Deep mutational scan, measured.
Amino acid sequence: MALNTPQITPTKKITVRAIGEELPRGDYQRCPQCDMLFSLPEINSHQSAYCPRCQAKIRDGRDWSLTRLAAMAFTMLLLMPFAWGEPLLHIWLLGIRIDANVMQGIWQMTKQGDAITGSMVFFCVIGAPLILVTSIAYLWFGNRLGMNLRPVLLMLERLKEWVMLDIYLVGIGVASIKVQDYAHIQAGVGLFSFVALVILTTVTLSHLNVEELWERFYPQRPATRRDEKLRVCLGCHFTGYPDQRGRCPRCHIPLRLRRRHSLQKCWAALLASIVLLLPANLLPISIIYLNGGRQEDTILSGIMSLASSNIAVAGIVFIASILVPFTKVIVMFTLLLSIHFKCQQGLRTRILLLRMVTWIGRWSMLDLFVISLTMSLINRDQILAFTMGPAAFYFGAAVILTILAVEWLDSRLLWDAHESGNARFDD
């Protein structure tokens, strides 16, 4: 018995066209964080690309023209004298008006014999932002004059995390709450300039795509075929072959399989920071003279006294001054041990922890910024005066060393310790 099946006739004509040209192939790229070699397709503007294995951002879609970056830099340069030299806060102490600005706080630190601690604050609040705007201006002028731009481009990517104007702005709020127990506070004209400078700096850093600047100024022929001998440069993120001198053909720094002496430098910085954190938390970090009496505060006791007036601000200072430094030390110690013992479990967790400490590390400088600003506000000789204690130097040095330890660690070593050939990683 035959089955009668109805015929289905399409209502619209289906047209099949042959592909007349070869589909576009992607360029081969190595991930600078996990060293995976993959094919990167062509990316349009405002599109980002991520590593298929570790999800690290390979290409950032946010990109401004150099002219727009230069305009932002010149605007920031105009704001800087007002943000640093004009009063941020006014207080009335014992019937006398006192003005506080950024430069005055750094000068008070240096004047009291601790120039190293003052230079830490100076670099993060004044030096690094000033280098940022002058570097962008150098790129703008240098591109037109045919100057060598490689050193500036190499420095810009590392400079971003040292620009800490946003953290200093939080420190202004913390210092205001600490001082309000002794005097009446009012915002100064410099505060508005400083807030504007923070906003412009944040926007500029978020749109400063150094890798795209490398592509514009020093374009290189990408690798179009897969080759395990391809290496990625950690300076400019170019994937290719080393030249005859073993250097990256684009930025001219040595092109090595792994960062040289990464573990040794990381261990040295980490152990030194552990040693410095002990006096930083045991010795007094601030000293207040009130009517001839002397009151010393460690980091913890200062947080407890701050909690009596504002528990939320005390929580912020606790996280930045105690929780973050010790968390960074514990995480980095764990990561280094996992590399030495070739741990194969929990790779995803370790990668996330490394990215976390990379982002939060700079916030530990908050305590030094609060001390710097408070020193310029309260300084009335023996009637009422505020000065920093010996722990300030140890704390600042420990924070900087932990930042350097994270920067010096080559994250690809975590993958080397893991089993080879993993296309995915999980716990």
Rank of each mutant, 00 (worst) to 15 (best):
M1K: 01
L3I: 11
I8N: 10
P10F: 09
A18N: 11
E21S: 13
Q33H: 13
C34M: 00
L40V: 09
P41V: 13
N44V: 13
N44F: 10
Q47W: 09
P52I: 11
R53N: 13
A56P: 00
I58P: 01
R59L: 14
G61E: 10
S65L: 06
S65G: 11
L66V: 15
M72C: 09
L79M: 12
M80S: 10
A83P: 11
G85S: 07
W92C: 04
R97Q: 04
D99F: 08
V102E: 02
Q104H: 12
G105C: 05
W107E: 14
Q108C: 15
M109V: 07
T117D: 01
T117A: 09
F123M: 02
A128N: 00
V133P: 07
S135K: 01
S135T: 01
I136S: 04
Y138T: 07
N143E: 15
L145S: 06
G146Q: 03
L156T: 07
R158L: 15
L159V: 06
L159D: 03
W162L: 02
M164G: 02
I167C: 07
L169K: 03
G171L: 00
I177H: 04
Q180P: 00
Q180R: 06
D181Q: 03
D181P: 01
A183Q: 01
A183G: 01
I185K: 01
I185C: 05
V189R: 12
F192N: 04
F192H: 06
L200Q: 15
T202N: 15
T204W: 02
L205R: 15
L208W: 07
L213Q: 06
P219G: 13
P219S: 10
R221E: 09
P222W: 08
T224W: 08
D227A: 07
D227H: 04
V232D: 03
L234C: 15
G235R: 02
F238Y: 10
G240P: 04
D243T: 07
D243V: 07
Q244R: 12
Q244I: 05
R247Y: 09
C248H: 00
C251W: 00
H252K: 03
H252W: 02
L255V: 02
L257K: 08
R258Q: 03
R259C: 08
R260G: 06
H261Q: 10
S262L: 03
A268W: 00
L271Q: 08
V275W: 05
L276Q: 06
P279E: 11
N281C: 15
L282Y: 08
L283E: 06
S286Y: 02
S286G: 08
Y289E: 01
L290H: 06
G292E: 02
G293H: 05
G293I: 11
G293K: 12
Q295V: 09
Q295R: 06
S308D: 06
F318Y: 10
F318I: 03
A320M: 13
I322D: 10
F326P: 04
K328W: 00
V329P: 08
L335Q: 08
L336T: 09
S338G: 12
S338N: 13
I339K: 09
C343A: 11
Q345R: 14
L347M: 10
R348P: 12
R348G: 11
R350A: 11
L352H: 12
M356L: 15
I360C: 05
M365S: 05
L366Y: 00
D367Q: 00
L368F: 03
V370N: 00
I371K: 00
I371N: 00
I371W: 01
I371H: 00
L373T: 04
S376Q: 08
R380K: 04
A385R: 06
A391W: 01
A392S: 07
G396Q: 02
V399D: 02
I400R: 01
W408L: 04
L409A: 10
R412A: 01
R412M: 00
W415C: 10
D416Y: 11
N422M: 12
N422Q: 13
F425L: 14
F425E: 13
D427L: 14
